[in-house]
């Protein structure tokens, strides 16, 4: 590790290299939520995001031998997820018809969740939340992929700027610059929504 502190995930990865399934399961359980957050926000389609998150962990197991212990496991993991997401985005750009399918699927994905949760807010609040979620995703989708990734990694991961820089393949100052530009664009696009507090459910207010 660069900062001298031992990475507990590194110890688990040593066991994964020897084929230890328990250690691998522990890593999957620890990182499945942040990786799914990232893939979902990057591709915007839940079932594709689940596939990408699953593939990320399969790649971890498959290429465990390539993991170097002088790097943080989370940095390596997010780099795999980043590459898979960027490949998917490039694939969609080559086949735009797939993107339309995904948008339709995304709407389908949301519908059952809205009905399933008995503690969900009242319909007008729910509408507002759904609209805001769509607006945030839209604003995020309009960012260049690396800016989008930088903003998301900043929000989701327990990662330093050095780590984010390694994942994005750029320096710390370039990373901060990406985040700054991304957030400036988001602020402009989301200005009308910033003060609505529409995320707030009765429990969180």
């Amino acid at each position: 590790m660069a900062d001298g502190t031992p990475d507990p995930d590194g110890a688990l990865m040593r066991r994964v290299k020897r084929g230890d399934r328990e250690a691998f399961t522990a890593l999957v359980d620890k990182y499945r939520q942040p990786i799914l957050n990232l893939t979902y926000r990057m591709v915007g389609d839940l079932s594709e995001a689940e596939d990408l998150a699953q593939t990320t962990f399969v790649q971890v197991y498959r290429f465990a031998d390539r993991y170097r212990e002088d790097a943080r496991f989370s940095t390596w993991l997010y780099t795999i997820a980043r590459n898979l997401c960027l490949n998917e985005i490039r694939r969609r750009q080559r086949h735009p018809a797939d993107s339309l399918e995904s948008v339709r699927d995304r709407d389908d994905d949301r519908a059952p969740q809205q009905q399933a949760d008995p503690r969900s807010p009242s319909p007008p609040d729910e509408l507002l939340r759904t609209e805001l979620e769509g607006k945030v995703q839209e604003a995020l989708d309009a960012l260049p992929p690396n800016q989008k990734l930088a903003v998301l990694l900043c929000r989701d991961g327990d990662l330093s700027y050095e780590d984010i820089g390694k994942i994005l393949g750029c320096s710390v100052s370039a990373t901060k610059s990406l985040i700054h530009r991304g957030r400036e664009t988001l602020k402009k696009r989301l200005k009308p929504y910033l003060r609505t507090g529409a995320w707030d459910t009765p429990e969180t207010q």
Partner: peptide, 21 residues
């Protein structure tokens, strides 16, 4: 706004699906 952005729910079978894959 970003902090309170709802997270997607991880399917119950996720880890099992990964191990099967």
């Amino acid at each position: 706004l970003l902090e309170r952005w709802p997270e997607p729910r991880v399917p119950d079978r996720f880890t099992l699906d990964v191990l099967e894959a």
